[in-house]
Amino acid sequence: MSVTPALDARREFESLLEPVATVAYRVAYNFTRNAEDAMDLVQDSTVAAFRSFDTFQKGSNFRAWFLRILTNRFYKSRKRGRVETTPIDEAEDVFLYRQAARAGLLGNDDDPARLVLDRFDVEAVEAALDRLPDEFRDAAVMYFLNDFSYDQIADVLGVPVGTVRSRLHRGRKILQRALWDVAKQRGLVHGDGPEGAGA
């Protein structure tokens, strides 16, 4: 006998895990803000998921199932620990667009947003995301790192879809302000005023 049933299950689990491992790590990294903790969280979630693999419905969304387990484990660990982020003000609608226009950054480019965002490296975007208060950040992490519908995000985070809707709505506004603040702090853009606009 060459393959035991246990080994079979492990191979099946691994084949489902492989395509989602990277995104799971990135979610974990944006949750924990630390490479070592992120690795611990993914490893711990992998073992937990494998142990309850018999509860996974074949053919359903493995990524969502796995990320739900990872999120729950993260929530458990966060209770003891994480420093509260300072709440930041919500921005007006299309804040970044207005700020970029005021700073004279838009020009006549076909894709002015890219012109602005190209000033950010990955780390600056992560720093901006990290400024979101926890509940907004969790929803934003799921939103930006996955091609999930609001329903799926609600399922993964264990909150009603209306809550996801409002957290994403506010979270994205806060994120725009945070992006602008980070850009200013790092000298990627200058000021809010029209000084760059040739006034």
Binding site: D111, V116, V122, F144
Partner: peptide, 26 residues
């Protein structure tokens, strides 16, 4: 503009570092 902002955020986050031996460790 708004669509492009969030699409760019998505792309940047999807490009963040990930340990190469991740799957091996799992």
């Amino acid at each position: 503009f708004e669509e492009s902002v969030f699409e760019t955020v998505r792309l940047k986050l999807a490009a963040s570092a990930c340990p190469e031996d991740l799957m091996a460790r799992l």
